[in-house]
């Protein structure tokens, strides 16, 4: 007979139970409904997991202080003679000057577009890095210094990594996305501005948000601002990886209906997606799909849902399987 430990030595079960993302959800849900015994054992295994909750040890030295201590040791690593250090300073000063000059002389080409199925990594003049998702557009006016604010505009989707060192230089970093405004204090976050939805997912740091004239709201890490057409906006807790993993060519779905998945494919790949049978629209999918290329993605979706898929030039057709 099956025992709880049989499940607890399975990484997939533990990952699913500890909800490290929605991994393997479809698999285990299917497994659970197979028999009452399965449900009972899974229940016991999850009780065990609760019991195995260890008390956290709080470090005596906080993270930043510990790093500073380490950094001191790093600088002591190889003592250098004074004149060498002086030369380093000269070098550093020269690089700084070149850097500043480059910043001020940054050319006017501040308009980037990605094609369907294309992803770009950009470095902005202040050192901020941006992953621009497919079918997206990022632009800004080259007047940052004059305006005293680093303002960029986004259509589509992008992941921003704004380093705190840059915000300390004084100028706030602002992302405008349709009616949405995001003000940043050195941080990492993902922004979606598509036809039917706007999302800001905060990975690290802190941002404040203004949308449609509402008072500004502050996001904490792992929180998401979420607005969908015809619905009031909300702030919810999320597993951020689900919303940022597109950078690694993985798409996460959490109970997403096929009709919505079809829209995502159209946005990202620029193909027309047709769902042949009306009842398929509401079939929903949970899990992770590799999206390195369209074929892999379509295959993963059709296999998971047990339906047929056909890629025909610019068209993708999903249809129900014919009974054998």
């Amino acid at each position: 007979m099956l025992k709880p430990e049989d499940l607890l030595v399975d990484d997939r079960f533990v990952a699913w139970s500890m909800s490290e993302g929605k991994l393997h959800q479809a698999y285990w849900e299917a497994w659970l409904v197979k028999s009452d015994e399965h449900q009972e054992i899974a229940h016991q295994a999850q009780l065990m997991l609760q019991e195995l909750h260890f008390q956290d040890v709080t470090p005596e030295i906080a993270t930043d202080a510990a790093w500073q201590k380490l950094q001191q040791q790093l600088t002591q690593e190889k003592p250098k003679r004074i004149y060498l250090l002086a030369r380093h300073w000269q070098k550093a000063a020269a690089i700084l000057l070149i850097g500043l000059a480059a910043w001020f002389m940054w050319p006017n080409s501040s308009d980037f577009r990605t094609d369907f199925a294309e992803q770009q990594q950009l470095t902005l003049p202040d050192g901020t890095t941006v992953n621009l998702r497919a079918n997206s557009h990022l632009w800004w006016e080259d007047e940052w210094a004059a305006q005293g604010v680093r303002e960029v505009h986004l259509e589509g989707e992008a992941y921003f990594d704004v380093s705190p060192a840059n915000t300390q230089a004084g100028m706030p970093f602002v992302v405008k996305a349709n009616t949405l405004g995001i003000k940043v204090m050195g941080t990492e976050f993902n922004v979606v501005n598509r036809s039917n939805r706007r999302q800001v997912t905060l990975v690290e740091g802190s941002v404040s948000i203004v949308d449609q004239g509402q008072p500004f709201q502050v996001l904490r890490p792992a929180q998401q601002y979420y607005w969908q057409a015809n619905e009031p906006s909300q702030i919810r807790e999320v597993t951020t990886a689900i919303f940022t993993d597109w950078r690694n060519d993985r798409w996460h779905f959490d109970q997403m209906p096929l009709s919505e998945i079809a829209l995502r494919i159209e946005e990202h790949y620029g193909k027309d997606v047709i769902i042949a049978n009306g009842e398929l629209q509401q079939h929903s999918l949970s899990g992770t799909a590799p999206a390195k290329n369209l074929k892999m993605l379509i295959n993963a979706i059709s296999v998971s849902l047990g339906i047929n898929a056909q890629i025909d030039g610019e068209r993708i057709m999903f249809s129900a399987k014919q009974p054998q």
Binding site: E5, D6, Q44, M48
Partner: peptide
């Protein structure tokens, strides 16, 4: 690793559940 974990979990289950 899995064998060790299995034996450990069995001991723990008897104690905890």
């Amino acid at each position: 690793v899995r064998n060790s974990a299995y034996r450990a979990l069995k001991k723990l289950r008897i104690q905890l559940l």
